[in-house]
Design a binder for these strands. Structure first.
Lengths: 239, 239
DNA sequence: GTCCGTCTTGCAGAAACCCGCAAATTTTCT
DNA sequence: AGAAAATTTGCGGGTTTCTGCAAGACGGAC
């Protein structure tokens, strides 16, 4: 068995290396990459079926890397090992995991044991292991109790990118009014209307405020924005 | 001599501890805190004059912590040790460093030697040490060659918070039109007008797009937004 | 002082945004 | 299939944003 580690930070990388060695004695080789691009390359060359991946690396995003790896070999097992449980990340991961694939999401703040257990469960038993904190988000975001539907999330990304109503309508094949409807739902759910500190006359620019709140609530983050921007460019070049 | 380490990540914390021990043999005690709040407390209790501080910690921000520490003892020497050189961080730090104080800004990607050298320069020699990458940003942002004036940055934060033109005018004591002038300057400098992929009819919502671009260029980030939101709440409660 | 540049302000109009109302359409459920 | 619920769409109008034009205001340079 071979394991590929994709991780920015040298300290974390060697810590992971150690953890893999100790949790998986049957592993005869550990590969390391320090950014997403190198990770993809190594995975391709070595036909790696077992990957531990950091999200948020400066050069190339972990989610991007995971996506291309999974596109080439959908049965690859990937353990995401991340600092944060932002909804933006969780959503980003759920969107790309192929049906039936085994994967995991463990926070860096988890204990040694938890990490090692996750490594064995995923790589040996092919089970999915999702940290409790992360799991909570996933439930909430998919079962739309408090969470957002896909269309609301879509329109959120669109205004975060700075598109006009008209542009969104074109992109999503909707009428202008429908877009505005979705925006209204979004504003409602994000609770944009609260007049800060019961100061009556302080109103917000709803559109901009929605993005702000989404950021503060970690529905959005840099990496999500980056991905959205790339998708937009794609769509744009395809007319 | 005592040194206080404020750092989220246990791995990085112990690495720092080691570095301090080896670079500063005259240091007889190393204190550790794992978030900004605890850091402030320890600094206060121990009258620490030498601090190594991580920016971006989940609980309480490094910049916030540094600010209160410096408010209580402006001669404290602080070395900021950060993953990123976002302009938002650099700007945030420059804004709070007291006149004449010795401080440093070193990236986590720097070598062992660089870190140790910085530790000695700042704590022993009272010199300022700023990483080259960071320095570049600082130049650009202060000397307003390509950078932004304070008023432009202010208005950028304000729209990022989701304020209306009117609200900004009230907050900054300007007329509506002046606010809009500054917005125009901002749009100009951020190059918001470029029609994506020479597609003529795709225009952006300038206000939202400006924020997006600022994020992508790292003029803004989560922590800056968080601070701005807190400032806004302050201002609001003071009518 | 005068001149020049930058910043501020008002006015006005085009475009975009926000939203209530109501009809048409699609989806979901029984 | 038929009813209920959710979505989509058009219309209309009130508000906000964006911008050109032009008239002061402030400050520094000569």
């Amino acid at each position: 068995m071979k394991v590929l580690i994709v991780e920015d930070d040298p300290l974390h990388r060697s810590y992971l290396h150690e953890a893999v060695r100790s949790a998986l004695p049957e592993c005869e080789q550990v590969l390391e990459a320090d950014n997403g691009g190198a990770g993809e390359k190594l995975a391709r060359e070595n036909k790696s079926a077992h990957v531990v991946m950091d999200l948020q690396m400066s050069a190339r995003n972990g989610i991007e890397a995971a996506r291309t790896i999974w596109k080439e070999r959908p049965d690859t097992r990937i353990l995401f090992w991340s600092n944060y449980a932002d909804e933006a990340y969780v959503r980003g991961v759920s969107r790309i995991v192929p049906p039936g694939a085994a994967y995991g999401y463990v926070l860096k703040s988890a204990s040694d044991d938890r990490l090692k257990l996750a490594l064995r469960s995923i790589f040996i038993e092919s089970q999915c292991v999702i940290d409790r904190e992360v799991r909570g988000l996933q439930q909430k975001s998919l079962g739309h109790a408090n969470g957002f539907t896909d269309s609301e999330y879509e329109v959120l990304m669109d205004i975060a990118l700075g598109l006009t109503d008209r542009a969104i309508a074109k992109r999503r094949n909707l009428s202008l009014r429908s877009v505005q409807n979705r925006l209204q739902q979004l504003y409602e759910k994000l609770d944009v209307y609260q007049p800060m500190n019961d100061n009556e006359e302080s109103r917000f620019n709803l559109r901009a405020r929605a993005v702000t709140i989404a950021f503060l609530r970690k529905l959005l983050n840099y990496s999500a924005l980056e991905r959205a921007e790339a998708e937009l460019a794609d769509w744009h070049s395809g007319r």
